[in-house]
Design a protein around this nucleic acid. Sequence first.
DNA 1: TCGATTCATATCTATATGGGTATATAATTT
DNA 2: AAATTATATACCCATATAGATATGAATCGA
Lengths: 121, 121
Amino acid sequence: MARAATTADAFNAVAEPRRREILDALAHGERPVGELVDLLGLAQPHVSRHLRVLREVGAVEVRDEGRQRVYRLNPQALKPIHDWVASYQHLWKERFDLLDDVLEDLKDEHLKDEDLKQEDH
Amino acid sequence: MARAATTADAFNAVAEPRRREILDALAHGERPVGELVDLLGLAQPHVSRHLRVLREVGAVEVRDEGRQRVYRLNPQALKPIHDWVASYQHLWKERFDLLDDVLEDLKDEHLKDEDLKQEDH
DNA sequence: TCGATTCATATCTATATGGGTATATAATTT
DNA sequence: AAATTATATACCCATATAGATATGAATCGA
């Protein structure tokens, strides 16, 4: 048997760095394919294929807008990855560092929310 | 170009479900190959190959003990994955749920630590 | 209506995979 | 030393990839 399909689940889809770049780009807001092509510096067919993989695992969704296809992130699809790796987090953190980091995370979340409030789209 | 090697980074190594099972098994303590073979129900050569991939990305380490090779987890190798998905966490969580989950996580960590204290190896 | 723009799909190629099986290597026991 | 145990590696195979390129489909502007 060969390797599992990239569309098998989010783990496989996200193993490709280019697809993580796409998700990172969409984290700041939805974008049409052309913008992603410019951002990644990849050929348009490649971006479309990566988007297809991400769509099949539910990591992105599309919307037709004229002749453009506007992609947006669906972050829930990444939750299984987070849940799995989070169970290891305590193993690389000391007990007391953990509390510190949690508090720092909370602060970060707070700052991110502030950013979002100031964002235009 | 073909898909990136499974040994390219932790993302690719961990995309294979069997290798996640191995890591999950090692999370409870180090184990010789034979035990992993029994646990996974895979042929021994396959387990050895999966372990090789995990070793090449630094996710596990080995120790010789007589004619056995005892593998142990190196959780730090998973940190890049955690760091990446964690930046998306706030996108699928509501503000107030977040605090709840963090507190629950802390409780879970506490329970896990209790378990570890009672473990023999 | 025709050309231009935006995106998706089809086809080709080289490559690495995971499973199966056989064998090599190393340590232990008899 | 020979047999046994524990693990790693070598080889074969079918498959799916990512990139390259060409083309198809849909929408818009003139």
